[in-house]
Design a binder for these strands. Structure first.
Lengths: 219, 219
DNA sequence: CCATTATCGTTAACGCCGTTAAGTTAACGA
DNA sequence: TCGTTAACTTAACGGCGTTAACGATAATGG
């Protein structure tokens, strides 16, 4: 009886609004995302959106949440390509983190915006934006003996910080345009840099015992 | 010909505008920083600001630049408290980076905003936001044998990423409110976490010799 | 000393924004 | 048939960055 045409049409509108907002965000950037622009795209007036979303922030939150459900899937898939408990799995997670952020830059910038942070806590994110995934991988790696025994939550935050810091720095400073950041005369994006980080993350920056040889470097 | 009274009065207004904008940014946050609010504080109309600044972005850029001149001084002072070429100096720089960002959150968030990144390149920042400082410290540490020989620019980006990532994550996810991030039942802010990172940065995450490790990665 | 001129500031207005309030239309249950 | 309600509209408010046109005022040149 009651779950009738009207409610279904309502849900369809809601979905259309979400889709429109997602498109605008992805293709025109966050600055072009306004109630009016979304409304134009779905062919209704801006105020109609308020039937489905409390306000703009609510709409944006919903949009972002959808995007980050794929984030979790993307990370999960990338991690499972490497054996559990291995360092390679951790590296794959980091690389997937970076790759996804670069390919979905608007989403990433919006979610981790410093001005209006959208996750009120890590738990707000689907799969904790990969936090749970990473934590599991770290625990497995410790258990497998791949990485040293240390507070797993600290290791998680450390690894997350390395990838996230590299990303946010490259997004806000455009390091790829800096002449200093051409490694071996080849311009170097976040992914290449992240690869170069691997030995440092694995073995640290401290000089090893009896170590004096150069293990890498630019011209 | 003279740089006379009229120009000086103009410069005074310009300074008053900058001061007002800085105050609003620091005390009320970036959302309260509008041309009209700044104008109100200095006691003139919003449009008068355009005599001294091309537009809002120009004003903000100038404000941020002033703030980050102190950033460079802060980092420099913190670094010099530790012996040159030492790991302690690198750690001090990182800790100062975090401390300054926490104490000048609005500045930090504005400069490294992902939406409107203000540094067009690292060189835009006074002292490269400490980049030059860090680079020098890394080179000295390599020369002193404190850290391994590796591309110094990669090490710089790595260290910068660790600190910056921890900061931005904590600012956008409010990790201190997450129950997971109480280390030893004590709520744990960025500075405490950064301290916990030190052994990882120094020695890496890999299990030391003695543990059976899956050391056979890609590289 | 006066006219000119550049400097410093004003008010009014435009088009955008998020949001609220009130009104319209159509489908539905009783 | 009537009343209710969901879905959507238009009108409007206050705030935003910004432009244009205009006035006051101080410095300067003849």
């Amino acid at each position: 009886m009651s779950v009738s045409v009207s409610t279904r049409r309502g849900a369809e509108s809601e979905q259309a609004i979400l889709d429109a907002a997602r498109d605008i965000l992805a293709h025109e950037g966050v600055e072009a995302l306004s109630m009016r622009s979304v409304a134009d795209r779905v062919g209704m007036s801006a105020t109609a959106i308020y039937r489905y979303f409390k306000n703009k922030d609510d709409l944006v939150r919903r949009v972002v949440r959808v995007g980050f459900e794929r984030f979790g899937a993307y990370l999960s898939a990338a991690g499972e390509e490497q054996p559990p408990g291995s360092l390679d799995r951790l590296a794959a997670l980091g690389e997937a983190y970076i790759r996804f952020a670069l390919e979905n830059e608007a989403y990433f910038k919006l979610l981790f915006s410093l001005q209006h942070p959208h996750p009120h806590s890590i738990d707000d994110l689907p799969h904790g934006a990969g936090h749970g995934l990473l934590r599991t991988a770290v625990l497995e790696a410790i258990e497998a003996g791949s990485i040293r025994r240390y507070d797993p939550d600290v290791i998680v935050m450390y690894l997350w910080s390395v990838a996230h810091g590299l990303l946010t720095l490259s997004m806000s400073c455009r390091i790829e345009e800096c002449p200093e950041f051409e490694l071996g005369a080849v311009p170097c994006g976040p992914i290449e840099l992240f690869e170069q980080f691997r030995p440092l993350v694995r073995g640290g920056i401290a000089a090893g015992p009896g170590d004096d040889g150069d293990e890498g470097g630019a011209a």
